[in-house]
Amino acid sequence: MEKIATREAYGKALVELGQKMEKIVVLDADLSQSTKTVLFAEKFPMRFFNMGVSEADMMGTAAGLAASGFIPFASTFGVFATGRVYDQIRNSIAYTRLNVKIAASHTGITVGEDGASHQALEDIALMRVLPNMTIIVPADGGQTFQAVEAAVAHDGPVYLRLGRLAVPRVIPEGTPFELGKAQLLRQGSDLLIVAAGLMTGQALEAAEMLEKEGIQASVANLHTIKPLDGEFLIRMAKDTGAVVTAEEHSILGGLGGAVAEFLAENFPLPVVRVGIQDTFGESGTPRALLQKYGLTPESLVLAGKKALKLKNSPK
């Protein structure tokens, strides 16, 4: 199957939408070849601003463009797009509700060989605690295109989380995309696996493996981490009684954190989180890193069994 990185799909989507909407402008901090904003820069040089290696200034400049009616996309690697500029995003973008789209590439452990300094594993957590912020984590190239469209249509700050690694299509073509609405990709009554980003594909594989052992798992893609689709989660929790979360991010504060917090308050049931276990990453190939840090279908199978055991143990 043809694979495409979500950052690549993002670059192409910018060009296509930029053609239709002249209010779209793009900023980058000296990484346009890697974030793929170079595609937009080549097509619309007057609407592209390279800010050099100065991410804080880039976020402020984007805020000023948005305050004047433009729709700026500000791109750099996930570590530099969040933690490095947290206060700029907090005060100049989120507090002001300005229409800035922060599109971060190179998120998660699959950044690979560059190592821990460049692997954003806590970016969702940082963005999730900011009021007014919307967070989208596309699962594949097709969904990335829909996510960019949705980000443009939404008036307000958006954090779009993209990856470096080429990934196969996991969301069937033609699946509608609605901001804030989870997508049920597979139905099974024993447990629910909620996944985002490239872990969506891993979750679908895990469900196949579980089926061979007689366990029926539902799989949902939660592309919008914030606002969270609470109604969907409650409905699925009632149907299945056990939940596993899957993300290429720390288990603290990301998708798993959001789902666990929500269900603890609204429909308490076992929730087992698969993700980075509160540790930094390291250099290695994406595949080796996914293995070492437990972001595999096998890990999800074990987590599913743990969730089922908790579900069936006497209260």
Binding site: V25, M46, R47, F49, A56, D57, M58, M59, G60, T61, A62, A63, G64, L65, A66, A67, S68, G69, F70, P72, D87, Q88, R90, N91, S92, Y95, T96
Partner: peptide
């Protein structure tokens, strides 16, 4: 009030963005 502020050091960047916007238009 054209821009929220209070956390120091951010206003010149924002003003740059506004100036770029004026030029684009």
């Amino acid at each position: 009030v054209e821009m929220s502020s209070g956390s120091l050091g951010q206003g010149l960047s924002v003003a740059n963005g506004m100036a770029l916007a004026a030029r684009l238009e």
